[in-house]
Each structure stands twice: as structure tokens, then as C-alpha cells.
Write a protein that binds this DNA or RNA. Structure first.
Length: 382
RNA sequence: GGAGGGGUUCCCGAGCGGCCAAAGGGAGCAGACUGUAAAUCUGCCGGCAAUUGCCUACGGAGGUUCGAUUCCUCCCCCCUCCA
């Protein structure tokens, strides 16, 4: 079968590596740069797919490892695949389980062959491998699959980082082989690693480029390192990647991370921050962050951000949102998630517009000016 | 009228002679969160002074004791059961 995945670059910023483009998948076209809301268990927590549609979300993430454990990929396949199961008609990208190698590091054992995970749900041990990851992602029927990688922590010793990126490369090769045997309309992205050693970052990127995946990712960032280290690693990785392919910056990040990522050529982003922090009472705005639970908003009639066009800001006051959080009302999480996702999608959408209009450097400058203005107005610097 | 149980810091609720400014919850306040084991987690939570310090507090008033939230007496409230 011919695969429908394509990537076309539509505009470039003359002063940076930023570009606008379009990703074509079997479930629709995705304008880039794009932010992908995270829906680990087949749901973007606290919002329904119709919220995502009205927010203008174009693609969502789900997680291979978690869906494999619950409800199991075979069940999802029997019920018509993940799109149908979760009621989301647009494209889906699944993370391979590589992040769980990191986040569940206390519950797993690594070998050359793969990882043995102890389930956080019931403690049962399951063996997970590159081939198994591809198999699960194939069964889920997602549009973009990710290679199983090893995501190491921060900081990592050079020797450890080197060993880890070599393993990630061997696993990438195995994933690629498993994927090429399949006959489905799914793309597979390779993931580069290399910790925070620029030469390793670059080499890992080159190794992934050699394997010639439809898309390329930079993994293993935003693990607690300073911003400068992160950006340096990203730049080093980009030098080793094929510039004609989409670059996905995995798990990143804050609004600043995203704008800086775009500037360095990243096309795709995902992060739990807008949704998780929303549920924990933190709103992201172009002026900075607002901890809406704070007592100072008790009688604040203003919307979170006066210039934001989202449903939450058009309809509700800070005082009301604070009240909802104070009382653990479920609506609080939905309204906050809707706002944060709107802001993130608007941030990347605005960058795309600017790139198409040739005004990206102005957009970039304005981004920081807004944050400075917000700091004077009681917002926390994002 | 009789029998029993109880009144503790904003609330609930342990403590029942010194280790008690008083366990544990809750509420309140603040912070964290980056390919989601997260509607989670952490800190503060009588006042003042701020290295051990002082003051105010365990229904009220007395008393016993070196020392009482803890023991005794009386009083005031509350609850349950029996008349």
C-alpha cells in the first residue's frame, strides 16, 4: 500500500531556522508548526473531542504503553481502531513507550532485547521491545508511530549517554524493519537522543537520518536542564537531521520553549503542561502564568486574559474560575484546559501565520514584550 | 427527676500529670509540574521575637501538685437513654 504521509515546507523565516509547512496523513492535513495535545490514555484529560475540534486542534497524542496495558491494543483494534474508539476523527500520533522507560524507570529492567516493565496498575511484568511497540502502534491504527527509544535522565554521564544513544539507534533500526514489513497507512518517526553533549546530539541525529524515517524527532529534552542547555542540544540535533523532513521536539514544553523551538526549526510539539497545569489551577497566557487559585483573584471580575478569544475567557471571570477550583468542581479542569490548549494552539498558529506573512521576527519580539508587560501586571513569568 | 457520655487551636478529632502550641484529617495560604503512575505532589498553618526565648491557648471559676489539656470541687452548656 502506498503511504499517504507527506511533508511540505511552505515558508521559511530568513533570520532563523523557523519554517511553516503541512503534514499530510491518512486522517487529514496538519499545518505546522503545530502543538499536539497529549491524550495518553486515549483521552485529552478533562476535555471532549468536540472541545478539541472547536479549539482547532489538528492532531493528538496517545501512548502505546498505557493503551497496551489498558484496554489492550487488540480490544481497540476489534472496536475499529483508536480514532473510532476515542471519538477523535483527526490524526493521532502515539509515543512508543520510550518516555515510560524514563518516567517508570523504577519499574523496569533494560536489556539489549527490550524492556521488562512492571505495570503501575497491577504490578504484572510485561516484556516490551521495539518490535512489540511497533506491533501495538500498528494495531491501534494511528497515523504517526514513534520508535522505541531510551530516554535517559538529566544529568547523564557521557559514557552512559553514548551507550544509550547507541541502543536507541539499534532499536530504531529494529522498529524500522518491523514497520516496513507492515502494510498500513502509518508513518514512523525516528528519535534522536544524545543527552546534553552537542557532539553526541549531532551524531545521534545523523544516525537517525541515515535510517531514513518519514519524520524525525528530538527526544530526551526538558528533563530538568537549564533552557540554554536544552536549546544548545536542539541546535546540535538539527545540524544532524534532514532539513526536508518534519522535526518533532518531543515533550517540550513551556511557551518559551516552544517559541525558541520554532525558531530552531522544530515543526511539531507536544507537552502535558497545558493540560496538567490546567488541572492544577495554572493558566498560561501571552502575558505569563496565572495561578488562578490565589486569594488575590477572589473578586477579580476580569477574564484570565482580556485579549484571549477562548470560550473560558469570553465567558468567565477569574473570580468564578477560582471559585470552581476552590470547590474542586470538575468544570474548573475543563475550562482551564480549554483555555491553556487554546493559548498553546494560538501560539503556534500565530507563529505559522507570521511565517507565511514573513513577519516572524516581529512575532517573536512581541512574544517577549507581552511577557514583560505581564510581569508588571501581576502575571508570573512563564 | 434518674442514669450515662461529652465540651481541645477556623472546623472535625486524638491526647488524659511533664517528651503539648497540642497527633491526624479538613479548610485556608503559598509553591512545584515539560514524549502524563499526576483532578497530583510539597511547604506553611496561635501571636511576637526570630540560635535555645516570651506571651496567649485545651467551656468557666477555684483547688491539689515542683508542674495540669490531663487529677479534685462547684458552675455553665451539649448529647443519649430511662421516667
Amino acid at each position: 500500500m502506498t503511504r499517504s504521509f507527506k511533508f511540505a515546507i511552505e515558508a521559511r523565516d530568513p533570520h532563523s531556522s523557523a519554517r511553516a509547512g503541512a503534514l499530510t496523513t491518512g486522517h487529514g492535513v496538519i499545518p505546522t508548526p503545530i502543538f499536539m495535545p497529549v491524550g495518553t490514555r486515549g483521552t485529552v484529560k478533562a476535555v471532549a473531542p468536540d472541545d478539541l475540534v472547536s479549539l482547532g486542534a489538528r492532531i493528538v497524542l496517545a501512548n502505546t504503553y498505557h493503551l497496551m496495558l489498558r484496554p489492550g491494543e487488540e480490544l481497540v483494534a476489534r472496536l475499529g481502531g483508536l480514532h473510532r474508539f476515542m471519538g477523535w476523527p483527526g490524526p493521532i500520533l502515539t509515543d512508543s513507550g520510550g518516555f515510560q522507560v524514563f518516567s517508570l524507570s523504577k519499574l523496569r529492567k533494560m536489556t539489549e532485547d527490550g524492556v521488562t516493565f512492571q505495570s503501575p496498575y497491577d504490578g504484572a511484568r510485561t516484556f516490551f521491545s521495539p518490535e512489540r511497540s511497533v506491533e501495538v502502534q500498528t494495531a491501534l491504527g494511528v497515523d504517526i508511530m514513534m520508535c522505541l527509544d531510551e530516554c535517559t535522565g538529566y544529568p547523564s554521564a557521557r559514557e552512559e549517554a553514548e551507550k544509550s544513544m547507541a541502543l536507541t539507534r539499534r532499536w530504531a533500526k529494529r522498529c524500522r524493519e518491523a514497520w516496513s514489513r507492515s502494510d498500513t497507512d502509518q508513518a514512523l518517526f525516528g528519535i534522536s537522543q544524545g543527552s546534553f553533549y552537542p557532539d553526541l546530539r549531532r551524531r545521534s541525529a545523523e544516525e537517525i537520518t541515515e535510517l531514513d524515517f518519514p519524520g524525525q524527532a528530538v527526544g530526551g529534552l526538558a528533563l530538568g536542564e537549564p533552557l540554554e542547555d536544552r536549546l544548545e542540544a536542539l541546535e546540535a540535533a538539527r545540524e544532524g537531521l534532514n532539513p526536508d523532513k518534519p522535526m518533532y521536539l518531543m515533550g517540550v514544553g513551556t511557551p518559551v520553549d516552544i517559541i525558541e523551538g520554532i525558531r530552531r526549526g522544530a515543526d511539531m510539539f507536544d507537552c502535558v503542561l497545558p493540560t496538567r497545569n490546567a488541572r492544577n489551577g495554572q493558566l498560561f497566557t501571552r502575558l505569563g502564568r496565572l495561578v488562578i487559585k490565589n486569594a488575590r483573584f477572589r473578586e477579580d471580575e476580569r477574564p484570565p486574559d482580556e485579549r484571549c478569544g477562548c470560550y473560558t475567557c469570553r465567558t468567565f471571570s477569574r473570580a468564578y474560575l477560582r471559585h470552581l477550583f476552590q470547590n474542586d468542581e470538575p468544570l474548573a479542569m475543563r475550562l482551564a484546559s480549554v483555555h491553556n490548549l487554546h493559548y498553546y494552539l494560538d501560539l503556534v498558529g500565530g507563529a505559522r501565520e507570521a511565517l507565511l506573512n514573513g513577519t516572524f521576527s516581529g512575532y517573536y519580539t512581541e512574544f517577549y514584550e507581552d511577557l514583560d508587560r505581564g510581569r508588571e501586571d501581576g502575571f508570573t513569568r512563564a
